[in-house]
Structure formats: structure tokens, C-alpha cells
Amino acid sequence: MKVLVLTEQKLMEFLASARTAYDVRVPVSLHDGTRVIGRLGEGPLAIKGGAINQKITSIFFPHMETVLKCSNGGFESPEPAPKPMLVVGFTKQDADCLEFIDRFYNDKFRDDVYFNKRDNAVIVCVSGRCGANGKLLKVSGDNCDMELICDGQDYIVRAYTDVGKSLIEDIGSTEIVPEETLEQIEKESDQLCVEGLDLLNAASKLLLEDKVPDEFWQSISDRCIACTSCNLACPTCTCFDVFDRTNGCGIDRWRIWDSCQLDGFMREASGHNPMGQELIRTRRRIHHKLAADVTRWGHITCYQCGRCDNVCPTGIGIMSVCKEMVEKYG
């Protein structure tokens, strides 16, 4: 069996050609070197380097977006974009996050504003030897349409869904190389440590068994400055606030990322606030993903993407907290 391999140059050409049918988004490096998912040409291609710091699901659930337009007493909902998106740059963990929030936004009520962008979008994962500092990124498997597995330089392309497969066909003739490298990467990928997951599972168990006392949450919340970064970076955090704003010709209703780390998040008109204490909010941040969602969805909803630990300015992202928790109470 042979596999398809693309050089970065060839990949660029492929992505450029995909633009006729797709709104193509790829990791690019911005002015000061910050990597984000952007449009082709917004900056130099920056596929290598590991997970993007930005909340990866912001592609479909952006910081702020209109959910409704009101003018002359009438209402108008946003329309799907003319072209579906093709997004490169998800890690395996990112794709898992996306898979979960797809289910979340589709549950009971379908969030059409989200699916306007998400429907028909093509997800391309990046894995292999292109993580930060040369680390290996876990091979995604079939949690996406297509995957680019980096051998350190070039990308081995694999398609999982029909769309992915037809896209590969479009690429046409390219170098074909033996698949030993791929086998080797996959083997290494399988061996990538599962410590993180074990830790989360242990923490989850402690929480479900209610073995973590309030003192613990207080000591963590003493260090939380309510910057909201953890929520705003997390790909499975979905909370938003809604507000109206007049523009020249009418009123737009917007939604904007919100954070359960804010006191006002649940404060009601009466002043009653079920989450009116720091320690309750800190607990919520962890408990939600590791216990509440286990009860609701049957699994934890943190996929160890690492963003909250990166972005928390005081070092109390989910992994650090779980580590402390399991050391103390496990």
C-alpha cells in the first residue's frame, strides 16, 4: 500500500485550489508570530508548531457574532455563508472537542447560528512530527474529514470521510512514498502517554464521589483573578451572553463569549446568585467538565487540549488543579 505525500508547497497549491469551493482557513503566523487560524495569505503558513493557542472552535463559535437582526418590527436570522469552510489545523484533541460541541449545539434545540458555519465544513487535522518543540502530535484517526500527518517535513495525507476522499482525488497525481514512516509515526502516537487522561479520570472520580471539600476550592480560587481566559480559550466552553445594539438602520442582537468565572454570570434580577462565591465558581469550572457532564453526557468533556493551562496567568488550569486535587485527596 502506498500513501499520498504533499510537500508544504504542494499543500499550499492544493489549499489555494480548494478556494473555489471552500472558504479555506489555515494556521498562519501573524505580525508578531502569533499563530492563529486565518485566511490563506493572511500571513505565512504556520501549520507546524502544535495546537493553536486560540480557542479552536471559535471558527464556528466566534467571540462575538450577530444572532438576529431587527428592523421595522421584523426579525431576520443570519444566513449560512455562501461557501462552506475548509479548516486546517485541528489536533486530535481539538477534533474531539469539536465533535463534542457539535453534539452539544445539536442537542434538543439545534443552534442554527452555529450550524450555519459548521454544516458542510471540512475539518483537516494536523498530526505527526510537527508539534511545539518537535514534539509528536497524536494521530487523529477518523475524528475528522482529512488528516495531514507530518513526517517532520512533508505531510502524509489521509482521508476518512467521503468529502475528504473526494478532496484527495482532486489533488491528482502526487509523489507516492512507502508507508513505513507512517507506520512508525502511528506506533509512536499510540504510545503517547495517557497520564493526562488517567489524571482527569482520577479527578473525575473524586468529584463524582464528592470527596473534594470546599477548602480545596477556596485555596484554588484565592489564586484566580477572574480573567476569564480559561473559558475563553477552551474549545468545549460554549457559554455566551446576549445583548442588543443599535446600528445605523436597525438593531442587532449579538452573542458574546461569557465566563462562569464571573460573579454576574448567574446573578438574577433579585440579586440572588447561585454562583455568588468564588469557590463555587472555581469548582464549577472543573466540576462541570469532569463530573456534571459525565452525568449528562456519559463522559468527561475536557479533551486535554492544554489551552487553559497555557492561558491561565496564575497556573491553575484544569491539569494543574487536578494534579493538586489528586495528590491531596486521591
Partner: peptide, 9 residues
């Protein structure tokens, strides 16, 4: 419509 922190700053 939003803010993106600079990871390099």
C-alpha cells in the same frame, strides 16, 4: 468583533 491575545508578546 473580538480579541485575540498575542502569544508572543
Amino acid at each position: 468583533v473580538g480579541i485575540e491575545p498575542s502569544s508572543e508578546h
